[in-house]
């Protein structure tokens, strides 16, 4: 039941943000949009399958939001760096690439954390997630392979993010 209420609140919030039925300059409120969104959100919450939020109390832990903000800063730095790296490789006349698919092991457990880590891998320098195996292995396409060893590759690819994501989603 609590899951359905959270789903309802989330979808209603997104509806309100998308339609934005408040007009601050004239002070009018579009009642139609608010009521329609209320009904639609109730329908969505009723129809959707149960999404399980394990350990609900963790959503209200302020420390996780602090680490999330720090992570956004670190992540933006690597995002811009990775783009400059790709720009260098693409515009260089000799195409300095040495591609390959390597296998790395992660210690993260929950689905959300693994999804976040896979998306971070894709957006950071020279790497792209290809597949995830259920026993904790990522297959990563690397545009400039510098090492064949599994541990060293893991340290170079996910060493800088795994700690943050563990803090945010599993801490």
């Amino acid at each position: 039941m609590a899951n359905k209420i959270i789903l309802f609140l989330l979808s209603y919030l997104i509806w309100l943000l998308l339609t934005w039925p408040f007009d601050f300059s004239t002070g009018q409120i579009n009642v139609q949009a608010i009521v329609a969104g209320f009904i639609a959100s109730i329908l969505v919450a009723m129809i959707m399958r149960e999404i399980s939020y394990h350990r609900l109390a963790r959503l209200f832990n302020p420390l996780r939001y602090f680490w999330f903000c720090v992570y956004i800063l670190v992540f933006s730095y690597y995002l811009v760096k990775s783009n400059l790296d790709v720009a260098f490789r693409v515009l260089h006349p000799d195409l300095p690439i040495k591609p390959g698919i390597v296998k790395i092991k992660t210690r993260l457990q929950t689905d959300t954390a693994i999804t976040a880590l896979a998306n971070s891998i894709t957006l950071t320098p020279g790497t792209l997630t290809v597949d995830y195996r259920n026993d904790g292995y990522f297959y990563v396409h690397w545009i400039y392979v510098t090492t064949f060893s599994q541990e060293e590759a893991a340290a170079r690819i996910i060493g800088r993010f795994e700690w943050f994501i563990h803090k945010i989603f599993e801490g």
């Binding site: 790709v86 690439i97 792209l128 545009i143």
Partner: peptide, 25 residues
């Protein structure tokens, strides 16, 4: 730059890397 990478790089995976990163940012 991402679209130039999409045209210049040699195989699907490299193209996907360059294009996704640059065009997303």
């Amino acid at each position: 730059i991402g679209c130039i990478g999409l045209v210049r790089l040699p195989d699907v995976y490299n193209r996907l890397q360059a294009a996704t990163k640059c065009v997303t940012l």
